[in-house]
Simulated scan of single mutants.
Amino acid sequence: MNKKNRAFLKWAGGKFSLTEQINQRLPKGRRLIEPFVGAASVFLNSDFDEYLLNDINPDLIEMYKIIKRKPKQFIIDAKYYFQDKFNDETTYYELRAEFNASDDFYKRSLLFLYMNRHGYNGLCRYNQSGGFNVPFGRYKKPYFPEKELLFFAEKAKKATFTCKSYQKLFQHLRDDDVIYCDPPYVPLSKSASFTCYASCGFTLEDQANLAQLARESKCCVLLSNHDTPVTQALYHDAQCDQVLVSRTISSKSSTRLPAAEIFALFSAG
């Protein structure tokens, strides 16, 4: 694919800069399964006949389903929140509270995109009660990603979206499936881990369980993670190689130093 396609979401840990390296390592197959789809950069920049895109975050998945079903209406309604009057700290916190109090998936989807573009540094974070708690971002003029939304909606015709645990994605696989896993990364240090992307954490036990599922899978599984002694031990029997990437989560650009990431490919068992 010549032209790279950006996700319509800002996303800490997004894979836009690594899509070429990921595509080089993904085996051939008919369907790509992503248990941790996030902002969907790999989906947007790969070429499979079918996609099964999953995430544990129901706000993310419901929004994707809505955009697939009625993209033009979603764009019209979402654009409303990108007027200058909404780029205000007080208004942001009022709308964040409205989001947390609402059980209407369509309303939550509109505000999810609004908060993603107006909140701090592309973070998606919830407190222990399940409330979205990312602070206001103070951007001069947040970008409304209309063309990115339209591209996503068109390509989403090839995709099925699910909100399940990662374990369930490994239970009903076809021989021509390929799996790409981009789980919450093993922290580089105790202070490096930012709180919860969804309303539950991803523990070291989960990291080990995911590696075991990949090892036992009937399909090829490619995993990304930080390159640490922990991940080297977890992926010891996979085909592994390392890449250096820039960090994007740190608030100070001077501390966004390159970090080593590991790709681990488990061949079909």
Score class of each variant (00 low, 15 high):
Leu149Met: 09
Phe48Trp: 11
Leu244Trp: 13
Leu149Ser: 06
Leu257His: 08
Ile249Pro: 07
Lys72Asp: 09
Gln239Pro: 03
Thr162Gly: 06
Lys140Gly: 01
Glu146Asp: 00
Lys141Met: 13
Lys15Phe: 04
Gly122His: 03
Ser17Trp: 04
Thr195Arg: 12
Gly131Met: 05
Gln239Trp: 02
Phe132His: 05
Cys240Ala: 03
Ala40Asp: 02
Phe132Lys: 10
Phe43Ala: 13
Val37Lys: 04
Ser251His: 14
Asn23Thr: 08
Pro258Arg: 11
Ser224Arg: 05
Phe152Trp: 06
Thr255Trp: 08
Glu261Asn: 09
Ser250Cys: 09
Trp11Arg: 04
Tyr197Trp: 11
Leu188Trp: 00
Ser191Ala: 11
Glu94Asn: 08
Val221Lys: 07
Ser41Ala: 15
Cys200His: 13
Ile262Glu: 07
Tyr197Thr: 02
Asp227Gln: 07
Thr91Arg: 09
Lys252Tyr: 01
Gly14Tyr: 02
Lys158Arg: 13
Ala260Gly: 07
Asp88Cys: 09
Glu94Ala: 06
Phe36His: 03
Tyr235Phe: 09
Ala159Phe: 06
Leu265Met: 12
Arg30Asn: 12
Asn45Val: 12
Thr162Trp: 08
Arg69His: 14
Pro58Asn: 01
Tyr120Phe: 12
Leu123Tyr: 06
Cys181Glu: 01
Lys68Cys: 01
Arg96Asp: 04
Ala268Trp: 01
Arg247Asn: 13
Asp88Ser: 12
Lys10Val: 05
Glu50Ser: 08
Gly122Glu: 01
Arg6Lys: 14
Asn209Gly: 12
Glu34His: 08
Asp77Thr: 10
Val134Lys: 01
Gln232His: 08
Tyr197Ala: 00
Lys140Leu: 06
Phe112Arg: 05
Leu60Asp: 10
Ala260His: 07
Phe152Glu: 05
Leu26Asn: 06
Leu234Met: 12
Ala233Arg: 10
Ile249Ser: 14
Asp103Cys: 11
Tyr139Lys: 12
Gly130Asp: 07
Lys15Met: 00
Asn57Asp: 04
Arg25Glu: 08
Asn87Arg: 02
Leu53Ala: 13
Ile249Leu: 14
Asp182Pro: 08
Tyr197Leu: 04
Lys70Glu: 15
Arg247Lys: 12
Tyr114Ala: 11
Val37Thr: 04
Gly13Arg: 01
Asn45Tyr: 02
Gln83Ile: 10
Lys141Asn: 15
Gln24Gly: 13
Tyr80Arg: 15
Asn57Pro: 04
Phe202His: 03
Leu204Ala: 06
Ala208Leu: 07
Thr248Met: 15
Asn133Val: 03
Lys85Leu: 15
Phe202Ser: 07
Phe8Asn: 10
Ile76Tyr: 10
Ser217Asn: 04
Ser189Met: 03
Arg25Cys: 10
Lys252Trp: 09
Ala12Arg: 03
Ile61Gly: 09
